[in-house]
Write a protein that binds this DNA or RNA. Structure first.
Lengths: 229, 229
DNA sequence: TCGTGGAATGTACGTTGTACACATAATGTA
DNA sequence: TACATTATGTGTACAACGTACATTCCACGA
């Protein structure tokens, strides 16, 4: 029952002295870099360079290792997700708003979707959001709440990843307009998705996200109605 | 409109000579390694070692680079997914069976979920599955079909990733039984998910997957009914 | 039998994360 | 004020990764 290495949350930040670095500063810088350069651009050296007079090794006192830094980054941006103090009356609205807020946050920090599933989700902000979601679902009678909650989270991050990947693919093949997409689909006619791809721009990524979210919530509602009529 | 580097599918396998390697052999070996050692154990050196008298560089003639190898691996295991020759009458049953088959395949190749979203999905087997799914959804009146299809795929792979991560976490914290889990939840009482985690084993991962799938399909059915009554 | 070209290999480079030893600067104490 | 202590930053170095390049090897057609 002993973790081979403690998570960063259980390792207190070392006391700072004048001019010393801080976790907050390191994390903020790392987030800026990841926002701009993506997940591949996020290296310890890049973070150290951006901090000015620092070598990579300076960071390790504060964040233990790169996983620790990533943990802190993930939780830091999780704070941008609006978590109401208390559930409103309508559980569908509550869940929907929470998912939307998470989606918006990921839109600002695309790397989040790629990294969140690589680390255990035990940061304070992440836990606060999870607790709220679980409360709402549980009082709605959707049990086990963890099951429904993980369905929702997976949906949001999964969708974000797919959109990110799609975007990267468009860039890769120099697709900037619908016309480009049509031409490209023609090029791959033999073994491609044929004419279906052409429907893709019909729905914006935000629209697609909302559609799927509503589908999922429909299913939730059906299960709830079936439980306590 | 020109790809910076062609995908492996557009690069024909070089002709072999006696005792020469083949793509199929390399891919098969790589899959075996990834099955056993996970995505971190999958290195070019490991594959070359497993092939016996080979250095990493031998592989590059056949697979171009590691991305090419991963593309081939992903498509190879995609062949294990049952794709019917033609749609049956019931679109819900068709979609459900396809998703289940994909889920089962990922259960045998856990690395799939972690890698599938890192590469463009243009392998022949992948495309065959996509085409079938799109046909079923489109004839069911769920349009744009690509939207619904991506919702489904994301759901399956997203759920697989979450289960994989969960499993890894249990291993990491030496959790082997429900009792262990309870004890662990107690340890993290202060900032943890409190009592909710305890509900987790109530539903097997397969059960949770089926639940979410049915929720999603409920939503699909509701949209379809609304469209063509 | 020998030359030729395709196939395999060996060497080496740039990057990554990060361990370890050392230098430095700030602080507590005398 | 002066020194010892210790927190803090830096430099060097290493293993592992993907893979470019040059070289060696070997099977085949002549």
């Amino acid at each position: 029952m002993v973790a081979t290495e403690p998570l960063i949350w259980h390792v207190p930040e070392p006391p700072g002295r004048r001019n010393a670095l801080t976790r907050a500063e390191i994390v903020r810088t790392a987030i800026t870099i990841a926002d701009a350069a993506g997940v591949t651009g996020l290296t310890m050296r890049a973070v150290a360079d951006a901090l000015g007079s620092s070598t990579p090794m300076s960071l390790y006192r504060y964040v233990r290792n790169k996983d620790g830094l990533v943990d802190l980054m993930l939780d830091e941006v999780s704070a941008e997700v609006d978590v109401p103090a208390a559930p409103g009356g309508d559980w569908v609205a509550d869940v929907r708003a929470l998912a939307m807020s998470l989606w918006d946050m990921i839109g600002r920090h695309r790397w989040y979707a790629e990294l969140v599933d690589t680390r255990p989700p035990f940061g304070p902000n992440t836990l606060a959001r999870a607790r709220f979601l679980l409360t709402v679902l549980d009082t709605a009678g959707l049990r086990p709440a963890v099951g429904y909650a993980s369905l929702l989270d997976n949906y949001v991050t999964g969708n974000a990843m797919s959109v990110t990947r799609e975007l990267a693919m468009f860039q890769r093949f120099d697709i900037h307009s619908v016309d480009d997409l049509v031409a490209y689909a023609g090029e791959m006619a033999n073994d491609s998705l044929d004419s279906w791809v052409l429907d893709m721009p019909q729905l914006s990524s935000d629209g697609r996200f909302a559609l799927g979210l509503d589908c999922l919530l429909d299913g939730f509602a059906a299960r709830q109605a079936r439980m306590e009529p």
